[in-house]
Amino acid sequence: MTTALDRARPRVEAGGPADDAGRGSRKIFFLVMPSAASALFLYPFVWLVVASLKPRSRTFADPFVPWPHPFAPENYLAVWDAAPMLAWLVNTLVIGVVAAGAVTLSSAFVAFGFAYFRFPGRNLLFGSVLATMMLPAAVTLVPTYLIWNSVGLTGTQVPLWAGNLFGSAFYIFLLRQFLLGVPRYVFEAARVDGASYLDLFWRIAVPLARPALIIAFIFELKASWFDLMKPLIYLQDPALYTLPRGLKAIVDQFYQGGDPKWEIVLAASVITTLPLVVIFFFGQRHFVQGIATTGRR
């Protein structure tokens, strides 16, 4: 297929405009600038990790020394005692995987419907998929809460993923574009061999769409991991919290509350961030493609 996915893949080897960039001094100049920018983007991370490994009295001291002195790894023991971090980590991971799995599969199902079939009203319906992308979450916030409230599911983690069972406009769009690139005879040949429509979806569309499915999965995992508002609205029991919700509770208690324990706040921030950074390093290629294709943040 030669859809947007391919076009959007940055051609790293291709090189920039073949200017007068051949001269050494210029080449160095073009590495110095991005290096300086990189330092600006990276240093806050360095500071966060270093400060989380220092005793409280030194949290703010020597911000430009990029190693912890004195070294206080016990902060990371203290944070597990101060809050149920492990439970929050597991909650976040489980909810993230369920939410991402649900939205990926359901969106693929719907996308196949739009990509394969020709039926009356198709363009109108697909237009309304695109239109729902414009609807700000704030508009549906209150009624959605009332729905979960009326079925007695507020206070549980269900509202954090159940809405994902019905597909999401961004991913439906992405996956449909991808499936449109699959030559039609691939499907027709299977039809002739007696495959049902469900077979077409499960045995042909899903395996072929794997790159796009991975993009959708990773993006939704990230979105779910980031989410603060839904856990704020739906979760009361701290045992059910996700990491962002838990981190917020920790900030309220140990940063702004009367009892400042900065090292706890910092260590919890690192724990909230680190798993995503690891996922990013493994799934980097998919992120770059996904953003370039869908413009999703």
Binding site: F226, K248, L276, F280, F287
Partner: peptide, 15 residues
């Protein structure tokens, strides 16, 4: 460089 520029976007907003 692209990786480094994108890295902050992997930090959850609360963090």
């Amino acid at each position: 460089f692209r990786t480094i520029f994108y890295l902050p976007s992997m930090t959850p907003y609360v963090a």
